[in-house]
Simulated scan of single mutants.
Amino acid sequence: MNRETAHGVGPVTHGSSDDPDLLDFSANTNPRTPPGVDEAYETALNAATSYPPEPPSEYREAAAAYVGVAPEAVIPTPGGLAAIRMAIGLAVEPGDSALVPAPSFGEYAREVRLQGGTPAFVPPAEITESDPGDYALAVVCNPNNPTGEAIDHGALRAFARRCREGDTPLLVDEAFLGYTDRPSMAGTEGVVVARSLTKLFGLPGIRAGFAVATGSFGDAMENARRPWNLGAPALAVGSHAMRQTAFVEATRTRVERERRRMRETLDGRFDVRESATPFLLLDVGDRPVGPLVAAVRERGIAVRDATTFRGLDSHIRVAVREPEENDRLLEVLLDV
């Protein structure tokens, strides 16, 4: 990244609401947090008069157990996006091209452009069928945001093998994988996995995440990591959250049940995509998206205008929240 490329690349629109008077279905984070996070944060805050441990061994061990890898493969980062930025920064040079899914999380393409590279957009469902040999990096979001689709694990492993054969690093963003029982790609040779604690644990403000990478690329990421890049509260709360297996299982069960119920209710009014995530993508057809979003907002609910995603001109995205909150959303969407 240099000053010239940074001047030429603007921010990505994320679109979540910060209005406390609205019931927020625009953000895709868990409305619940694991038990005990308050106590973990308070204890860590009292210890924050000193630098956090370096390297952060406890956090690494918790993350390693969470995804089933050796602790030395874990690179702690302040959120999943920091892991994504580090991987793209090490893989992409000016003039390179990177394989990027679209519609998907807009920060992938932005980070590629910040490095002076060019994103080559491919539909998420087709990216594992692509030839990665001509690219400096391939990116997969699994499950994909905002469409909600999950990639078959066998197809993803086969794609990772072709990436290795072409000497192309593969970055897999698993921000929403914890909502499923699908296996992680963490620890796979030639693959960098980015994980966030924002979504599943409902802690976007903590800014805790990690990457998993092995081999020479993993060594480069570990060397590039800044010391003390997570504060004491983020390390403590993150370590605690990743050990809450009962919370994870309960969340998966609740979200799956509510997502199915919401999809069945809305599918007669909208074209609703199947999803493995805590959100649903709705095609509103010929109705203008802006006025629809505004009408829902007037009823006290924020939904995500998904037209800011590449290739989605008639869509909104809605989160899966608590059952009684979901009832309210369904009532409004069926009425506007």
Rank of each mutant, 00 (worst) to 15 (best):
A175P: 14
D181A: 04
R182F: 07
S184G: 03
S184E: 00
M185W: 02
M185C: 14
A186N: 00
G187I: 12
G187M: 08
V192D: 03
V192A: 08
V193M: 10
V193Q: 13
A194H: 09
R195A: 14
R195M: 11
S196R: 07
L197H: 07
G202D: 15
G202F: 13
L203Q: 14
P204M: 03
G205C: 07
G205N: 10
I206H: 04
R207F: 15
A208I: 02
A208L: 12
G209H: 02
G209C: 02
T214W: 02
T214H: 02
G218Y: 04
G218I: 10
D219E: 15
M221R: 07
E222N: 01
E222D: 08
R225P: 00
R226F: 11
R226I: 05
P227K: 01
G231S: 00
H240R: 06
M242D: 06
R243P: 11
F247H: 13
F247Y: 12
V248H: 08
E249F: 02
E249Q: 13
T253S: 15
T253R: 14
T253E: 15
V255K: 13
V255N: 07
E256D: 14
E256F: 00
R259H: 01
R260H: 09
R261L: 11
M262A: 14
M262V: 12
L266V: 09
R269P: 13
R269I: 12
F270K: 04
D271L: 11
D271I: 12
V272L: 14
R273S: 15
E274W: 06
S275M: 11
S275C: 05
S275N: 05
T277P: 10
T277F: 08
T277A: 15
T277E: 14
F279I: 12
F279D: 08
F279Q: 02
